[in-house]
Each structure stands twice: as structure tokens, then as C-alpha cells.
């Protein structure tokens, strides 16, 4: 099973990025093999709709769940349509978040924010 986490740096010791759509990288982590793969988030520099584009990349990377502190409405719509579960991270540490997920300590993200759509353009 693979999961995704927005990451501030391309490093497993790095921190969870506070933004889903505009995170610089995503960690794609395989729970079974413990292989960590980082992908660039090309949506980070988008003029608008970053959440949708980032979510599309997550969908295409075939993960089962995403661990994130926040998620916008449009991104959540894409992720949910693809059957990807959204979990709320409690720690800023990536390692700690993975551990918490493995031990089923994370809750699903309830508050989906409306985002700032439309104000850019």
C-alpha cells in the first residue's frame, strides 16, 4: 500500500508541508516495502487550481491514502472521486506521521477548507 505526504524537502527526515496544493514535493511512501520516493509538485507554481493539479498527480501515482494537515475543497473532490482517503497529520515530522498512520492513530480529515479560488484571476 502506498501513501502520499506533502513534504517541505526531498528527505524522509524533512517536515510535512502545511499546504497540499502548493507543497514543493510529495513523498510517495510504500508501507510494505518502506521505499520512499519523492516527486516534484509541478502545481506549486500554478496561477490557479493548484489543488486540482496536485491531486491529479497524487491520483496518477496510485496511492491509497494521503496524509496532510490541510486540504482544499477542489483537491478533496478529486482525491475522493479517486477513492483516496485523506488523513489529518498531527505532527510536523514525516517519520512520525508515517508511524502514526501505521499504528492507525490518524483520523480522517474532516474540515475541508474552501480555498482561495477565484481571487487570482
Amino acid at each position: 500500500m502506498k501513501i502520499a505526504i506533502p513534504a517541505d524537502d526531498k528527505n524522509i527526515d524533512s517536515t510535512v508541508c502545511q499546504s497540499f496544493g502548493r507543497t514543493p514535493y510529495f513523498l510517495i511512501y510504500d508501507i510494505d516495502t518502506e521505499i520512499a520516493d519523492f516527486i516534484d509538485n509541478s502545481a506549486a507554481s500554478s496561477q490557479g487550481g493548484a489543488g486540482i493539479k496536485a491531486a491529479q498527480a497524487i491520483v496518477d501515482s496510485k496511492v491509497s491514502a494521503i496524509l496532510t494537515p490541510r486540504c482544499g475543497q477542489n483537491a478533496a473532490e478529486v482525491l475522493t472521486a479517486a477513492g483516496i482517503l485523506i488523513y489529518k497529520t498531527e505532527s510536523s515530522s514525516i517519520k512520525e506521521s508515517i508511524a502514526a498512520f501505521k499504528e492507525k492513530r490518524l483520523d480522517q480529515l474532516q474540515e475541508i477548507h474552501a480555498g482561495s479560488h477565484g481571487h487570482g484571476g
Binding site: G48, I52, Q56, V59, N74, E77, A81, G83
Partner: peptide, 25 residues
């Protein structure tokens, strides 16, 4: 179309194209 849209108003999920009307310019 998904790759073309500068505003990312389109997503392709599970064999279906999803259109975000509010994001479309």
C-alpha cells in the same frame, strides 16, 4: 485537455473527466 488547462479546471479520475466550473476561465 488536463495538461493544457492553465487554470487546472480539469482532472481525469477513474476513466472520467471532471470539470471544475468555478475554476474554468
Amino acid at each position: 485537455c488536463v495538461e493544457f488547462c492553465k487554470f487546472n479546471a480539469l482532472a481525469y479520475i477513474n476513466g472520467k473527466l471532471k470539470i471544475f466550473d468555478d475554476v474554468c476561465h
